[in-house]
Design a protein around this nucleic acid. Sequence first.
DNA 1: CCACGAAAGCGTCAAGTCAG
DNA 2: CTGACTTGACGCTTTCGTGG
Length: 119
Amino acid sequence: MMYPHFTDEETDLAPSHMAAATGDMPTYQIRAPTTALPQGVVMAASPGSLHSPQQLAEEATRKRELRLMKNREAAKECRRRKKEYVKCLESRVAVLEVQNKKLIEELETLKDICSPKTD
DNA sequence: CCACGAAAGCGTCAAGTCAG
DNA sequence: CTGACTTGACGCTTTCGTGG
């Protein structure tokens, strides 16, 4: 899928007021580094050197661990991208809301100017 | 404090997409 | 095809806020 990337330049109102909107400092993630690469995962045993069922099983295990590790990292990256995408959408909404408000105000002003006085 | 629920984060699986 | 990559869904854990 890949989240679409779009910038605030797409709207002409720069969100200067949006800088560090949340000022969030993650207080979590202080846990032990469980995501450190499993020390046992080593690139070993070229496929040509496999013989016994024991070695085949070890190779299968190694491959599985490698796959899980890669997917773990991929999931983290995917979530990071998604958060970024959602933040981007939210700031876009904020910009558009301001823009919309200004346009409504402008419309009201023009209505006042154009409408014939009745008194 | 402590218990509890909500929200956020994480790891894994499965299915979809795409390049080679 | 096939292997690598991406992401939705699910279940589990951790963090945070709150009422008692």
